[in-house]
């Protein structure tokens, strides 16, 4: 495992820990999109089915279980915790997330490496993950006061994607890995969606100002 991959995974892990910490300590999920979190549950369940079919490493297995468990846990808090659920910005989180699921699945049926259940589900999870951040970015744009934890959460999530791109470049050249266009392109699209956010995040950080996105 190379340094980019490890840093990417740690960034992803940290983002989830940060989000759970925000929810548990402040008893608030203000600014967080339930739609995005629900899409992540679908992404992880579809992708990590290979948990049962193939063993890669202890690290791999533990991380998969952590990502499934934490994503379900976050959705549970936002939907059912009697205090937390009242802080959810339901009226602002209006992206109809279920409409992106069928097109992603259809695309996976059409464009994949191998026509097997596992491979199509794996591919579906890549396509869905690429767009899963959209409801969150839209909610963020509508939020007047973005708290630091929410901003940092999204930054870490974006950093994870950017580091994975570097990881693929590294693997392609150093490990002579074969081209994996499906992963690369969906990963590239996913990372590109964060570009605008990154721009304002870094700008606010440099100017020591509170993060604010233009309406």
């Amino acid at each position: 495992m190379n340094i980019f991959r490890l840093a990417g995974d740690m960034s992803h892990l940290l983002s989830v820990i940060l989000l759970l910490l925000k929810i548990r300590t402040t008893k608030s999920c203000a600014g967080i999109s339930l739609k995005t979190q629900e899409l992540y549950v679908v992404v992880f369940l579809a992708r990590y089915l290979n948990l049962f079919t193939r063993y890669y490493s202890f690290y791999n297995t533990v991380m998969k279980l952590v990502f499934i468990a934490t994503s379900v846990c976050i959705v549970w808090y936002m939907r059912f915790h009697k205090v937390v659920k009242q802080t959810y910005n339901k009226d602002l989180d209006t992206f109809r997330h279920y409409v992106v699921i069928p097109p992603c699945f259809l695309l996976a049926l059409l464009v994949h490496h191998e026509f097997t259940v596992m491979e199509v589900l794996w591919t579906f999870s890549l396509y869905l993950e690429a767009v899963a951040i959209l409801p969150q970015l839209i909610l963020l744009q509508r939020t007047r006061n973005i708290d630091n934890l929410t901003g940092n959460y999204i930054f870490l999530l974006g950093a994870y994607r950017a580091l994975y791109l570097l990881n693929w470049i590294y693997r392609f050249f150093m490990e002579k890995a074969q081209a994996r266009w499906i992963s690369w392109i969906s990963g590239l699209v996913q990372t590109a969606l964060y570009a605008d956010f990154f721009y304002y995040y870094i700008k606010s950080w440099k100017n020591n100002e509170k993060l604010k996105l233009p309406a």
Binding site: R5, D9, Y56, S57, K64, W122, W168, R171, K176, S183
Partner: peptide, 10 residues
């Protein structure tokens, strides 16, 4: 590296 490249990723 075999066809499962990148499948060890998360």
């Amino acid at each position: 590296i075999n066809a499962d490249t990148l499948k060890d990723e998360l």
